[in-house]
């Protein structure tokens, strides 16, 4: 599936990035459509804990761990795997959940990282065409 980059901000000009739509699938809930940045620099996916709160997921009951963001900033995460769906394909997200907003504003995107999203999908960034080609891997047979 070809996904064109979307606008994600504005500096000296518009800034485009690989922001894609996917769904979080929580038990006994309607799927939650959201968007996240496909981030080859992220070891694992990072989701906003506010979404977990909205879906009544017991993420906060999991003891927190310290994670490191780009630039060396340390922050607390809760590891709580969840199912997600992209392009009609359901896959496991070994998600890290953290507060991506504070009392003043939203500080971060949902991130789709290598440990789970990239395990389920082959991702080809095409910077010149400003888009990404995302193809599901075939399930391994054992």
């Amino acid at each position: 599936m070809w996904v064109p980059y979307q606008i994600i901000g504005h500096g000296s000009g518009p800034i485009y990035g690989p922001l894609v739509e996917f769904e979080i699938i929580a038990p006994l809930q309607d799927p939650f459509p959201t968007k996240g940045l496909v981030d080859s620099g992220a070891d694992s996916s990072l989701l906003d804990i506010a979404i977990a709160d909205e879906l009544n997921l017991p993420v906060r009951k999991v003891p927190g761990k310290i994670a490191q963001a780009a630039g060396g900033i340390l922050f607390a995460v809760h590891v709580f795997p969840i199912q997600a769906r992209f392009g009609g394909i359901t896959f496991e997200l070994d998600a890290r959940w953290a507060a991506l907003a504070d009392d003043e504003e939203v500080r971060g995107f949902n991130l789709l990282g290598r440990g789970d999203f990239f395990q389920a999908f082959k991702v080809l960034f095409d910077q010149q065409r400003e888009g990404i080609e995302i193809t599901p891997y075939r399930k391994k047979k054992y």
Partner: peptide, 18 residues
């Protein structure tokens, strides 16, 4: 009924930070 809801930070220098 099914809006796509997501956090959107202020991005002015690209996404190389958190």
């Amino acid at each position: 009924k099914r809006p796509v809801i997501f956090p959107l930070p202020k991005v002015t220098e690209g996404h190389n930070f958190f």
